[in-house]
Simulated assay, not measured.
Amino acid sequence: MVPLVLVHGHPFNRSSWDAQVAAFAAERRVITFDLRGYGASAAQDTPLVTDFGDFARDLMALLDHLGVERCALGGVSMGGQIALDTYARFPDRIAGLLLADTSPRAETPEGKVTRNELADRLLAEGMRGYTEEVLYKMVAPYNEEAAVKVQRMMLASSPDGAAAALRARAERPDYEAGLAEVAVPVLVVVGRDDVYTPVAGARALHEALPDSRLCVVERAGHLPNLERPEEFNAAVRDWLARLG
């Protein structure tokens, strides 16, 4: 049974997957970790990312260290883009992909400016103002319990690490052209009320993949794994069963 590896989004940490670890750890190995510059990894004496591919290379180094030859790989938001980047670089190491509330497209010119301006702001002001502005876009306004956890993660994030990731993410490759070549089972998940990566985009992603299923999670925003873990986990369990 292949291990399940889960990649968090920006600006969070591995605790965003606590509900999935609790649900699946009894039946298979579940690996979560803090991306470079986030969570406990921010405290390490490691250079910050300069290239988006650094995240995929870090992930492969971790799997090599743990002796994992092949895994089921999932990510949410930026974590989903990291999963796509990892598959593009190391397809033989991936048995299946879980892509939650994410987009395969490269950043637009306007988006690059926005991400770099936000990086400058985080370095100058810290995380609080940004957190207050986007909290109820990260989670739907009616999901208060999830909002408390998300707010805690965001405020604890390193501005340096978050800024470096924003700059690297602004220059990420386009993954859309390679979707038709993805040769593993894929689960595409999206919150019904996600304002960052809406349902229409998730449906287009699903339709571009040769072997995928789409799950729209009701009463959830950008982080359905946190907002509606039971529904999210049920879809993940079905996907894992497809991997054999």
Rank of each mutant, 00 (worst) to 15 (best):
N225M: 13
S41D: 11
I94W: 07
E227G: 03
T32S: 05
A146V: 00
Y87N: 07
F55I: 03
F24N: 05
A168P: 06
A26M: 00
D120V: 05
G74Q: 12
A162C: 14
K137I: 08
H222N: 04
F12D: 02
R70I: 02
E125K: 13
L214A: 09
P91H: 01
P3M: 04
A146W: 05
V5Q: 12
L226D: 01
G201Q: 14
P141Q: 03
G53E: 08
A26T: 14
H222R: 03
D85V: 10
H206S: 10
L223N: 10
A162W: 01
Y38T: 01
Q151Y: 12
G244I: 02
H65S: 15
L243C: 12
G74W: 11
E145S: 12
A241Y: 06
V5I: 06
A26Y: 02
V184C: 08
P173H: 12
A177K: 13
S77L: 08
L59W: 08
D45F: 06
D58W: 07
L98T: 06
E227L: 02
L240V: 11
A202P: 01
A220C: 01
T197S: 06
P109C: 10
G75P: 05
H206C: 13
S16D: 02
A42T: 08
R242N: 04
E107S: 15
M154N: 09
A119E: 03
V2I: 00
R89Q: 15
G74D: 12
Q151C: 01
V236R: 09
F24T: 04
P224C: 00
D18C: 01
A204V: 05
E171A: 15
Y130W: 14
F232E: 03
R237N: 06
V184M: 13
V216W: 01
A88V: 11
G74A: 09
R167A: 08
N13P: 00
L209G: 12
Y175L: 09
K149D: 09
E227H: 03
S157I: 00
D51H: 14
D58K: 06
A163R: 07
A165S: 15
A177R: 15
V148N: 00
R121H: 11
T131P: 00
Q20W: 04
Y136F: 15
E125Q: 14
S41C: 06
D211G: 10
A170D: 06
G37H: 06
I31P: 09
P11Y: 09
Q151G: 15
L62T: 05
D160A: 14
P104L: 09
T114D: 13
H222F: 02
S41H: 12
L243W: 04
E117I: 06
P173D: 12
G244F: 01
N143M: 12
I82T: 13
G67F: 05
R219T: 08
S15D: 04
G67S: 09
A168Y: 09
S212A: 15
G75Q: 07
A220R: 04
G244Q: 11
V49L: 11
M1A: 11
L48M: 14
A140M: 10
A180P: 05
A200I: 09
V76W: 01
R93K: 10
R57D: 14
L166R: 00
V190M: 09
S157F: 00
F24E: 02
R203K: 14
V49Q: 04
T197M: 11
V76Y: 00
L99C: 07
V148Y: 04
